[in-house]
Design a protein around this nucleic acid. Sequence first.
DNA 1: TAAATACCGACTAAATCACTAGGGAAAGCG
DNA 2: CGCTTTCCCTAGTGATTTAGTCGGTATTTA
Lengths: 152, 152
Amino acid sequence: MISNKAKYAFRALLAIASAPEGLALTSAEIARTHSIPHKFLEQILLDLKKAGILDSRRGKSGGYVMLRPADTISFGEVLRLFEGPLAPLPCLSRNAYRRCEDCVSEAACEIRREFGRAYDASRLVLDSRTIADALRNSPYGAEPGHEVRRAG
Amino acid sequence: MISNKAKYAFRALLAIASAPEGLALTSAEIARTHSIPHKFLEQILLDLKKAGILDSRRGKSGGYVMLRPADTISFGEVLRLFEGPLAPLPCLSRNAYRRCEDCVSEAACEIRREFGRAYDASRLVLDSRTIADALRNSPYGAEPGHEVRRAG
DNA sequence: TAAATACCGACTAAATCACTAGGGAAAGCG
DNA sequence: CGCTTTCCCTAGTGATTTAGTCGGTATTTA
């Protein structure tokens, strides 16, 4: 199970990415429309900003906008931001490799091998699917403002 | 990351499954040879017994043996035993379905859809690969005693 | 009967989760 | 300037989970 924090981050990102280009959404607005505790959401948006995913403006008519285009932001990247390494074993993480204590041989470890298969499978999805993809296939959702103009 | 508990469970299971048929391994033995805290391992083996995966004998020359054959025990089953539902979202779990609070529409939820893809991919691996599979493909490991006799 | 083993319940210290509290800093408006 | 609105930052807190430990009981076998 992913954390609420990560889930909130995705909700917020999807909202910001699907807003008309240039229009900043405030944390209060997003919190209200998506039932996310406001102060908690502020922290999350801050993290997304520090990660270089969002940009922000202060003061009246301030808020958050996308910094990078939505089609360059994968689910895996965001998930790692809030959950840490996604690998089921430390010895399978590329970013945060750590040898298992008491591991005799990684090459011979059946557990590593089997979980490696599972991890490969899910990583392939998580690291290739982007926020833009998710919005594009959405049955009701708009396409992201950064990619395609809405008809109107 | 999976818990130590689950990792210990896999180590112990693989050890018991690869022991000669009928030979019971004691918790102390497994703990020693695999660097697992003994009392902690006892709890884990108990859980595996309660789940109908292992059987046990008490007293001198007691220990643990497989109850079900190793090729009927998937990694997913064992993992669920110790980690609870594997689904990344409660609304994606078949066994332990729970609606997300504040979910307007599951069909329209982009997060659910994308994580559904990732979960499908890893579930396919985890629920199909068995303890026997893991031992069979092991470069150094023996084949499980329950399946095939060792040459000798 | 003694030793070895599985079985059982309670406890604990540390970490993580899901927030809340209480501000400060900057931008814009009048 | 001062006021409001927003983002920004740090600390704290109660509940839960993790990773065990501790101290024993029950059962089997030699």
